[in-house]
């Protein structure tokens, strides 16, 4: 549907972009291994590329679009990063902690964190990769207590272990539930406690 690819609606993304760029600069100065990911849209591109990108968008070529985010290369430093964000960059609120499984064959999950600052009115999302065969990451509850339930939920949906979580019980599923429903390779159960599921 190439007709949809018109140059409107970038407004809301702009705010994300500014926030991500500022946070990226501050974080890399503080020594965190972070990369900035930004959507390849003409409005965000460097001067030389803008025309090419605009042409590609016109043709309906699929380019990555959406919010800019900061990617953390070393997932072991997530707690330090959160502390930095809270104390230095005034991101007081944790909005969301979740994960994304892109495909069953993928080796990694995306760990996704979303922050909100009530003073600067900016939003920031931070990503980090969590390998599926070593599916653990430090819990950020000591920094943001609000992440408590989000982490419990993500843990049972994706099978991620949040090390150091104060209360690692099941959140929504029954305690004896088998499998992690939001993984792409999840098989729907046939029966539960003798009640058939189909």
């Amino acid at each position: 549907m190439p007709a949809l690819q018109r140059d409107t609606g970038w407004g809301p993304m702009q705010a994300y972009f500014e926030a991500a760029r500022a946070a990226h600069a501050a974080l890399s100065q503080a020594g965190f291994p972070v990369e900035l990911h930004q959507p390849n849209l003409p409005v965000f591109a460097a001067e030389g590329e803008a025309k090419e990108l605009a042409a590609a968008h016109k043709e309906g070529k699929h380019l990555w679009r959406g919010d800019a985010y900061v990617q953390l290369a070393d997932r072991g430093r997530i707690v330090g990063l959160c502390r930095f964000l809270r104390d230095q960059l005034a991101y007081q609120q944790i909005i969301d902690v979740t994960a994304v499984d892109h495909a069953a064959e993928d080796k990694e999950l995306w760990g996704m964190y979303a922050f909100l600052s009530l003073t600067t009115k900016l939003r920031l999302s931070v990503k980090t990769m969590i390998p599926k065969d070593d599916c653990r990451i430090d819990s950020i509850v000591p920094v943001y207590p609000g992440a408590n339930w989000h982490e419990r939920e993500t843990a049972e949906f994706y099978g991620i272990t949040y090390t150091g979580h104060p209360d690692p019980r099941h959140m929504l599923l029954p305690d004896d539930w088998v499998g992690n429903p939001l993984r792409k390779d999840y098989k729907f159960p046939e029966e539960y406690h003798g009640i058939s599921c189909v």
Binding site: M13, R65, D96, A114, L116, S125
Partner: peptide, 22 residues
């Protein structure tokens, strides 16, 4: 939609309702 991801938070009667779509 083109490949990408977006987060939108709106003010629900109960608070911030966020949708994160990929």
């Amino acid at each position: 939609p083109a490949p990408g991801e977006a987060y939108v938070g709106i003010e629900n009667p109960r608070g911030e309702l966020g949708h994160y779509v990929v």
